[in-house]
Design a protein around this nucleic acid. Structure first.
Lengths: 127, 127
DNA sequence: CTTGACCTTCCAGTTACAGGAGACCCTATG
DNA sequence: CATAGGGTCTCCTGTAACTGGAAGGTCAAG
């Protein structure tokens, strides 16, 4: 399985798969005679795992850690839960930040008439 | 007023102020004989404007545009409102994304016992 | 045999700065 | 007056997670 097939199967771009190989996250298990990266089902499954973890906003380093736990038969669910909980907390913090930003900006936008005149509460507030 | 005083007055780091000068966002209005950047009240006010705009998540390019509108006596409030509304929409999209992420991850975290055993719904879901 | 789609490596660019090197400047103190 | 400490300058590198592109090798089809 060449890199483009693996990328398609995993739902990633070729560039991204090559990048993951470069940083040692998911290396191609083999190379062809011509030096082409060759992937198998196992590595594709890892790539999918990474894609889904990334979609959850886990960083590459967190993905690396999660992938280690994914492959580790002996790890406890507590180890996984710790990382996921940390990520959940980050999400909640970001949500609160976004909420206050949203409310403040929404207030400014609704209070701005948005007509041809120059006076604007948004600019007044920012300045 | 040297760069560190200006930075302190604007609530920014010296590095950031120098960066804004480099990219032509807020240049120092003058230089001393020794080549030191010299700031005045007007430029400090612009720096504050940028800091507050950045805090609202406006990109540097958006800040550049807003700053242009800020300084433009003839601009209409509609022009400002357009940019702010666009930003507000981006925030709302991000909020919805974060919300579904949050719900899904929260569901996984609560369904994981987080004990010494290896079976873990989080990993099962990601893999 | 050639064409076109693949693949390779390496380099540059993205965002919005931060860190640091090496050199210059300024002020205060001994 | 020398020097010590800060502050400032420019320039280079690094960050996260890739994307785009150049130059060149490979492979299958017609």
């Amino acid at each position: 399985m060449n890199i483009s097939s693996a990328a398609k199967a995993a739902g990633l771009s070729v560039k991204t798969v090559r990048y993951y190989a470069d940083i040692g996250l998911v290396k191609a298990p083999a190379r062809s005679d011509a030096g082409y990266r060759t992937y198998d089902e196992v590595s594709v499954r890892k790539l999918v795992f990474i894609r889904r973890s990334r979609a959850f906003g886990f960083s590459i380093e967190e993905c690396r850690e999660l992938l280690g736990l994914y492959q580790d038969q002996a790890r406890t669910s507590a180890e996984v839960k710790r990382i996921a909980s940390k990520r959940l907390e980050e999400i909640e913090i970001k949500q609160r930040e976004l909420q206050s930003l949203h409310d403040e900006l929404a207030h400014l936008v609704t209070s701005c008439r948005g007509d041809h005149r120059p006076d604007c509460p948004i600019i007044s507030y920012l300045g």
